[in-house]
């Protein structure tokens, strides 16, 4: 009989919860739901505790307890302490339907700043670099073979550049939903656009297929890890390795 430690208890609880989740193979059942509710609750509580411990206390409470009260009135403290306090108080008004309007200011600030950051990062970090990368497929050093380069390597590079270029253009055209309206009132793309959009649809399908295959391999790996864990728990309970 092994020594009952907190680690062992934790492993046993983990194994039980693992079995409860795996019971979904039989069908939707109470054990599976209880495990799900438990995970959701624990994750939410843990996230709240982490937020209070790592964000609220260091930013809003510790300066009051440890800092100089007069120092909180300085210009530096205005941006790092007073304003966050005001915004936090205003945001807390969202809990009251009557005072919810007062919480719109910090919420708008959060949304606006977040959108600006995401859009700016997307333009400078994704759109322009990816556009340049797609355009580089037409560069001379990519299209034409270098001196002493094997023909097979050059063909592979050229085909890769061509495929990347075709995939980029066709995928973008697929998401172009503008079309002319014919006499019957229905919209229809012109032939060239329809062909390119169909090719783009194929590339998108390939991409999603690869993502699904990756998720499947990840699930198989997670399943194996869980069975390794169960085997480890059984070994711990049996006193073995």
């Amino acid at each position: 009989m092994p020594d009952v430690t907190l680690d062992l208890i934790g492993m046993i609880i983990g194994a039980i919860l693992t079995l409860m989740v795996l019971s979904y193979v039989i069908g939707d059942n109470v054990l599976f739901r209880v495990a799900m509710y438990l995970f959701i609750g624990v994750a939410s509580g843990y996230a709240g505790a982490i937020a209070i411990r790592n964000v609220v206390l260091p930013a809003l409470v510790d300066p009051l307890l440890q800092g100089d009260p007069l120092g909180l009135l300085s210009w530096e403290a205005m941006g790092t302490f007073v304003i966050p306090w005001i915004l936090a108080i205003l945001l807390s008004f969202k809990m009251s339907p009557r005072l919810a309007k007062l919480g719109s200011l910090p919420l708008a600030m959060l949304v606006g700043v977040g959108a600006a950051v995401v859009v700016g990062g997307g333009i400078t970090g994704t759109l322009i670099p990816q556009g340049l990368a797609a355009a580089d497929g037409l560069a001379g050093e990519v299209i034409f073979p270098a001196e002493g380069e094997a023909i097979t390597i050059w063909i592979e590079r050229a085909l890769s550049a061509l495929i990347v270029l075709l995939a980029t253009i066709s995928t973008l055209i697929y998401f172009r939903f503008a079309a002319r309206r014919d006499l019957t009132g229905s919209t229809r793309r012109d032939r060239l656009t329809a062909i390119l959009a169909y090719i783009g649809q194929i590339f998108i399908a390939i991409t999603f297929g690869v993502m699904y295959a990756g998720a499947l391999t990840a699930a198989i790996l997670v399943l194996g890890q869980r069975f390794e864990f169960l085997r480890a728990v059984l070994g711990a309970l049996s006193g073995g390795s």
């Binding site: 990368a133 991409t207 690869v210 993502m211 699904y212 990756g214 998720a215 990840a218």
Partner: peptide, 11 residues
């Protein structure tokens, strides 16, 4: 993760 690779590899 294996499922996220196709969209990150272009970077």
């Amino acid at each position: 993760s294996a499922g996220a690779e196709p969209l990150v590899r272009p970077y």
